[in-house]
Amino acid sequence: GLALGYRSGDHGDIIQMDFVDSYQNLTIKTLMIMNWVATFCPNASHAMKVDADIFVNVYLLVEVLRGYPTKGFITGSVIRDGRPRRDPKSRWYVSEEAYPDSYFPPYVSGAGYVFSTDVARKVSLASRSVPMVPLEDVYVGLCLRAAGVSPVYAQSFLALRNLFEVRHLAYDRCAFAARVIVNGFKPAELLSIWEDFSVNRLTC
Rank of each mutant, 00 (worst) to 15 (best):
77 S>P: 05
73 F>D: 02
135 L>R: 14
73 F>W: 15
68 Y>E: 08
85 R>T: 11
74 I>A: 00
102 S>I: 05
74 I>Q: 00
62 V>Y: 05
133 V>K: 06
115 F>N: 04
125 L>Q: 06
96 E>Q: 04
71 K>C: 08
76 G>T: 02
106 P>N: 02
72 G>L: 01
78 V>P: 12
80 R>K: 07
85 R>E: 15
61 L>G: 14
127 S>T: 02
83 R>V: 15
63 E>V: 03
94 V>R: 11
95 S>Y: 04
76 G>K: 01
111 A>I: 06
108 V>G: 07
92 W>C: 07
66 R>Q: 15
100 P>K: 06
98 A>V: 12
127 S>F: 05
124 S>Q: 07
64 V>E: 12
118 D>T: 14
131 P>L: 06
128 R>K: 15
96 E>H: 09
130 V>M: 12
110 G>F: 10
99 Y>N: 06
125 L>N: 04
130 V>P: 12
102 S>D: 15
96 E>K: 12
73 F>V: 04
87 D>K: 09
62 V>P: 00
113 Y>E: 09
80 R>C: 02
116 S>Q: 07
111 A>F: 12
121 R>F: 13
67 G>M: 05
114 V>Y: 11
132 M>E: 11
133 V>T: 14
100 P>L: 08
112 G>Y: 03
98 A>C: 08
96 E>R: 12
106 P>D: 02
80 R>I: 00
124 S>M: 03
105 P>W: 02
69 P>A: 05
126 A>L: 09
82 G>F: 02
132 M>S: 13
92 W>S: 14
135 L>Q: 14
83 R>A: 11
100 P>T: 01
136 E>F: 09
72 G>M: 04
136 E>P: 13
70 T>F: 07
127 S>R: 02
76 G>L: 01
113 Y>L: 09
104 F>R: 03
